[in-house]
Amino acid sequence: MAKLTKSDVLHVAKLSKLDLTSPEVEKFQSQLSEVLNYMDELNTLDTDRVLPTSQSTGLENVFRGDDHTNDCLARDIATTNASRSDSSYFVTKGVLKK
């Protein structure tokens, strides 16, 4: 049984700025549900005595001084991978509706 509803999928699609066709919604409904089912499987492990972590290095307090600036990318290099740019800016579809 699918864990995610159609509206869950549409909600995630909206957050990802994706337009999905209804066959795609069905396809992702089952695929994303499978991912969650796998999480359920992981959840059966006993982790009571394991501390949660988001780090694997054990490092703390890694800082950079503010005393000098680094060289920046040349503008044409910075924009070189953009799907669209003009001489100064990265260019995207307008985000304002009105």
């Binding site: 910075a78 100064s88 800016y89 990265f90 260019v91 995207t92 579809k93 307008g94 985000v95 304002l96």
Partner: peptide
């Protein structure tokens, strides 16, 4: 708006 097309320019 450039040539009737709405665009957003990004400066990082």
């Amino acid at each position: 708006t450039v040539g009737g097309q709405k665009l957003s320019l990004v400066d990082f």
